[in-house]
Design a protein around this nucleic acid. Structure first.
Length: 563
RNA sequence: UGCCCCUUGGUGUAACUGGCAACACGCCUGACUCUGGAUCAGGAGAGUCCUGGUUCGAUCCCAGGAGGGGCAACCA
């Protein structure tokens, strides 16, 4: 057991630690991450991945990646590829333990015959509707159907013919014979195997009967030798059938299922069904839309795997339904990016500044460190400076409020890594909007400090008009306008809660030329504005596109809000 | 009118398994600063859902209640 496993324990790790000490399973810790390949992984899965792989590593065990591919209607190879890519990207390694429930179909079928022979399962020939009615309701017990007491021989015969493909979909189904009046609905003779004459993405036409989740899941765990089967809260009731099956089939020291609360995050949805709708209805650009909470989306947004892991650690693991604030996720992102990405100057909404006393045609190369003094990294670049500059419109106000210490008429500010400048004139167009500023620069302040010691409060970013590179900025915000989009007003659809301003595209931004040759996917901090990443899909030399990962904390924004 | 789970500051988790509640995020002050970033110093904020009980003593145990969530898919 590593030191890491000893402290900061959540209830899961505490339990695993106990089991390791007591030697309960008589084998090393084995966990598993069991996605169904019918959608993309999201931040909620990341929590589970961190837990399962984390527990395995901390206790000297292993974690399997097992695809729970039991439904040929919805699953696809493209999803297994993306899932593998995402798990790998998150920083976890399943070695050669890449498993598929579909590889266990034969084994599962044998178990089915075993159960039938033991009188613990039967073939039911009722319709789906009849089965549902026969199950009773949440407040009323169900009743046995007409086929419940079929002989073992009849059951075996029917089961074999189901496998042989003699019956159409829905004609028969294999059910566990437990108790139709069981207080736990799940235990009212749960369905184990159904007929589905559909090709399986991995097994082709090898099978026309497929196991259901309850049947496949626990037994797959047992087949692999999993010790701790960690899943989310909604499977709590399923634990009864899980235990029943591994016991009936005869596994010694079978795996044990433990449930923990799934992650919920403010301002987004984390259900595959809803995410799929967003994609299918074109409400986002795809699974990897940077606004999506999918791993693919988050990655394209510029978040690092380290940040996701750190976030997973801070939210912890518990048994209570909980919802994390976006702020805690953003903290993890900034905290990581702050220490690792270079700073760069980029003007989002350009406003031209002409330095009237700066020599025409002159260009200076100013030295600019890529990291601030408190980040232990080295690196710097030269940024060209000239008579005409772009600054951000937000950094100028003709009639500034109290405590605004950026540029305004008559005021002096520092150009980051550059000179102190003073605004002398405001040029407006016929409609009265500001189109250009005339400023003077103080030649003795190169580098940003005045020899006379005068203090300048404000520092703003800038780029040289003649040298800057045009670029597109995609400013992403929260996908939904309310913290809990799962809480939909009566009669409305969750899509009506989407935030129409979740994406703002700025096409006339300008960035310093030093980034010209950086590879796509490079991350930066655009000083004073936020963390950005060049878009892996759309950015190319000469047509740069940057995604905003997250804004910088902005205490001026708060100050303004107060007024 | 069933069964199961949960309930600690705004949020997420802790509390050596009974000894008067800690950490992180967020929030507020201030310092520092060529990023209104980061950092540093400080602060406010819960008496642990309620009512009883056991106990010298309960967030931890017991009983009842309330609130929230899950379960009636040939989905997982």
């Amino acid at each position: 057991m590593t030191a890491e496993a000893r402290e900061n324990r959540d209830f899961v790790r505490e339990m695993v630690a106990r089991d390791v000490v007591s030697g309960k399973f008589g084998r090393p810790v084995m966990t598993r991450f069991p996605p169904e390949p019918n959608g993309f992984l999201h931040i909620g899965h990341a929590k589970s991945i961190c837990l399962n792989f984390g527990v395995a590593r901390e206790f000297g065990g292993v974690c399997n990646l097992r695809f729970d591919d039991t439904n040929p209607f919805t699953e696809d190879i493209k999803y297994v590829e993306s899932i593998k890519e995402d798990v790998r990207w998150l920083g976890f390694d399943w070695g050669d333990r890449e498993y598929y429930a579909s590889d266990y179909f034969e084994r599962l079928y044998e178990f089915a015959e075993l159960l039938v022979k033991k009188g613990k399962a039967y073939v039911d020939s009722q319709s789906e509707e009849e089965i549902r009615i026969g199950r009773g309701t949440v407040t009323q017990p169900g009743a046995a159907g007409p086929w419940r007491d079929r002989s073992v021989d009849d059951n075996l015969d029917l089961l074999r013919r189901m496998r042989a493909g003699e019956f159409p979909d829905g004609a028969h189904v294999l059910r566990a014979k437990i108790d139709l009046a069981h207080p736990n609905m799940i235990m009212r003779d749960p369905l184990l195997i159904r007929i589905r004459k559909a090709p399986h993405y991995r097994r082709g036409d090898a099978w026309c009967i497929y196991p259901l989740y309850d049947y496949a899941h626990g037994l797959s765990d047992a087949i692999e030798g999993v010790t701790h089967s960690l899943c989310t809260l909604e499977f709590k009731d399923n634990r009864d059938i899980y235990d029943w099956l591994v016991r009936e089939v005869g596994f010694e020291r079978p795996p044990e299922q433990t449930e923990f609360a799934r992650l919920q995050l403010d301002y987004t949805v984390l259900s595959k069904r809803k995410l799929l709708r967003l994609v299918n209805e074109g409400l986002v650009s795809g699974w990897d839309d940077p606004r999506m909470p999918t791993i693919a989306g988050i990655r394209r947004r510029g978040v690092t795997p380290e940040a996701i892991r750190a976030f997973a650690e801070t939210i912890g693991v518990a048994r209570k339904d909980a919802r994390a604030e976006l702020a805690s996720f953003e903290f993890a992102v900034r905290n990581d990016l702050n220490m690792r990405v270079p700073r760069v100057l980029c003007v989002a909404r350009p406003l031209k500044v002409v330095l009237t006393n700066y020599p025409e045609g002159q260009v200076e190369q100013l030295h600019a460190p890529s990291y601030p003094h408190d980040v232990p990294r080295t690196g710097s670049r030269l940024v060209p400076f000239s008579r005409e500059l772009w600054i951000d419109r937000d950094d100028f106000m003709e009639d500034p409020p109290r405590k605004y210490y950026r540029l305004s008429p008559g005021r002096e500010v520092r150009l980051r890594y550059g000179y102190l400048i003073t605004c002398t004139d405001v040029v407006k167009d016929s409609s009265g909007s500001v189109v250009e500023l005339h400023c003077t620069y103080d030649p003795v302040t190169r580098g940003g400090n005045a020899p006379d010691g005068r203090r300048v409060q404000g520092t703003i970013h800038w780029v040289s008009v003649a040298h800057a590179l045009p670029c597109e900025l995609r400013l992403y915000g929260r996908l939904f306008s309310v913290p809990d989009p799962d809480d939909v007003p009566e009669g409305e659809d969750f899509t009506s809660l989407l935030d129409p301003e979740s994406l703002a595209v700025l096409r006339d931004a300008w960035i310093e030329p030093s980034v010209a040759d950086d590879p796509p996917g490079s991350r930066y901090q655009f000083e004073r504005t936020g963390y950005f990443v060049s878009d892996l899909v759309d950015s190319r030399p000469g047509a740069l596109v940057f995604n905003r990962t997250v804004t910088l904390r902005d205490s001026w924004e708060k100050e303004k809000a107060r007024a």
